[in-house]
Design a protein around this nucleic acid. Structure first.
Lengths: 127, 127
DNA sequence: ACAAACATACGAAAAGTTTCGTATGTGCAA
DNA sequence: TTGCACATACGAAACTTTTCGTATGTTTGT
């Protein structure tokens, strides 16, 4: 009886999820290599993934000696969860405030702005 | 010698900052009332504000018996700091991805979309 | 067969965050 | 003046998150 939907990932967990999203199913060793083998010990990654397994954030295939871990939560859903959380905590629920803040921050390229405008247009057409 | 710029606020600290941003300079009691006197003990708020003082997130006026705390960091700067942090951790630095994710989330009203479009136009005119 | 390399499990230290209890001081009203 | 309401200071408990050490088992190359 899986209790409910998995909890929001912690920062360290998010980093590992991002590896799994990008690489697909991976062994502990592969994940460690991806995050930089010198920055974090092997057993640290292992333990982290084991915790994530308990939380339902990942699943694993134990058919091989080196277990293969796979993300159990969507990138899109998790990202929205994180964004919504920040919107709530920092902007009192006003999504547009967050967007405005993000856009007025530097390092948004012209291409990115165009992508956003396209989405706005698409949203308009929906109604 | 203030070391450098204040660190990013933790979630609990952010909640208190939001009260100070909205109310302006406030006593511990006032802050506690604002966050809901029943949810968090008085000394908890007090201690939190004392820690925030050490971190440079707030300043205080001790001329009265009940010290008056004031935010030392801008809402806009702090919010951008938090957004940038999330962009980095969850979207690999791609600000537009975060924006797209935020916008495709429900609960963005037509008014909010208009505000965003206006900003896009303003950004265009800048160059 | 045996040592070296590599894998998991798991307890627990280390570090960070949040909450509160207790000691203590000060102003004020009966 | 005496006691009550209310304030700060501060240590430390309670949690959460992150990191690692150690025990132990399995595979592989010589």
């Amino acid at each position: 009886m899986p209790n409910s939907s998995p909890p929001m990932p912690t920062p360290a967990e998010l980093e590992l999820l991002r590896v799994l999203w990008e690489r697909g199913p991976s062994t502990v060793r592969e994940v460690q290599t991806a995050v930089g083998a010198d920055t974090t010990g092997y057993t640290t990654i292992l333990k982290q993934l084991q915790l994530m397994l308990e939380k339902g954030l990942v699943s694993r295939d134990e058919s091989q000696r080196a277990h293969v871990y796979e993300a159990r939560v969507d990138a899109s859903i998790t990202q929205r969860q994180l964004v919504d959380d920040l919107v709530e905590r920092a902007f009192g629920g006003a999504t547009d405030k967050l967007v405005l803040r993000a856009l007025s921050s530097e390092r948004v390229t012209a291409d990115e702005l165009r992508a956003i405008r396209d989405l706005l247009d698409a949203l308009d057409d929906e109604d």
